[in-house]
Simulated assay, not measured.
Amino acid sequence: MSLVRSAGLQKFRQVVEGLGGDANAYARKAGLPDGALDTDELLVEDTALAAVLEIAAADLGCPDLGLRVAEAQDFGMLGPLAVAIQHSASVADALECTSRYLFVHARDLSVSLVDDPDGARGVVGLRYSFGAGVRPLPQATDMTTLFVHRAVMFLVGGDYGLRSVDLPHQPVAARTRYEDAFGARVRFGRDSALLRVPSSLLSRPLDGVDETLRRLALAFLSRHSPEAGPVVAAKVRAVLDQSLGTGSTDLVDVARVLAVHPRTLQRQLAAEGESFASILEGVRRARARTYLTTTDMPLAQVSNLVGFAEQAVLTRCARRWWGRTPTALRREARVRG
């Protein structure tokens, strides 16, 4: 089990309710947390995400549900990663960026280039992997693979010469439905989910690149990457940043996300000169400052979003962090603005 951002369920509610289904009931049955269908920022179990698609598809008698959801999804659901990808110089740069920073979106997902399984000259494989030993359910595989295909089309502005598609399961919808969705031949029961694309695609430049936007997005992603400074501390910081205000920030739960024992996690952080408490405080401090200086939301709401049970706790922390009250910090920011 791994965790992914609930952005992966973007448009699920819209598609399901358009078919007459009860999206909330399916979410509860799959064990998804409240709000998972209506926000992009919750961390949810990948098994629950896959399960809700299977549950809904079966109840609605809609075997192509995963394909339908992917067709409705927006490339922007990847957040800052989408910005960095879109403003890369070429398709190869975009793929490198995706491979490096997909951790921010989902820890065990990866996109990589591999040799063409057919050995065809001038063709490479764009493989979407779900983690070692994981054989994902058909609806989630259909949804994510089609999303990758549509993302490439979005980047290059249309057709890119897709040769064929490999899927690791047998078809759950009509074969023609798959081929209509991908616009290419689809092969089933293969080793992995993979798009066979022309190798020349990699050098294709992207249009409308804004280097400033790319640098800003990469700066954000770098702060949350396991390669940014001490490895374990960066992973903890990334999980806390995504969980703050929407999920648990307890040591035990963060350790579970990272698949380590809590005591082991504490020892690893200590070896890097860090502590769980100091990382959590740093994430809270940065988030609180952003809310206080860039929004008008009530202080009680700010307190809740940074994980404090009472507004008084925010006030005490603000005095310790910045030597002033939250209200005074907000006032100073407005004067400077």
Rank of each mutant, 00 (worst) to 15 (best):
A193W: 00
V156Q: 00
V83A: 10
V209D: 05
L244R: 03
R331N: 08
S112T: 10
V306Q: 06
R263P: 02
V15E: 03
V209I: 03
A184H: 01
R175Y: 02
G183R: 06
L126H: 02
R267C: 09
T315Y: 13
A217T: 08
L258D: 06
H224A: 07
T47D: 14
D46C: 05
E310F: 10
F220T: 08
V4R: 06
A92K: 13
L60R: 02
L329G: 06
M143S: 10
L206P: 10
Y26K: 04
C97A: 10
S90T: 15
E272I: 13
L155C: 12
G161W: 07
D296K: 07
L265C: 14
R316V: 12
R256M: 02
V209E: 06
R289W: 14
S203A: 15
G122D: 15
S248C: 13
R121V: 09
A255G: 07
A106Y: 04
A89E: 15
A259S: 14
L19N: 07
V252S: 10
G66C: 07
A234N: 08
C97R: 11
G307S: 05
D38M: 07
P230S: 14
G245A: 08
F12L: 10
L213Q: 05
F154E: 14
V283C: 10
T246D: 04
C62I: 01
T39L: 12
R175I: 05
L167E: 00
E17L: 11
E96S: 13
D253P: 04
V4I: 14
S2W: 12
L329S: 04
V15R: 01
A300S: 14
L102G: 01
D118K: 10
P168Y: 03
Q73A: 04
L81H: 03
E332R: 14
Q301C: 00
D250N: 09
V114A: 07
R316S: 09
A92S: 14
A277S: 12
R223H: 04
L65K: 02
G273K: 12
I279V: 15
R331E: 15
C62K: 15
A318S: 15
L251M: 12
S248M: 10
E45M: 09
F182G: 02
E310T: 11
A328I: 07
G21R: 08
Q268R: 15
S222A: 11
M297G: 00
R5M: 08
H105A: 13
G8H: 03
D253V: 14
L218I: 00
L19G: 05
R68T: 03
A181I: 07
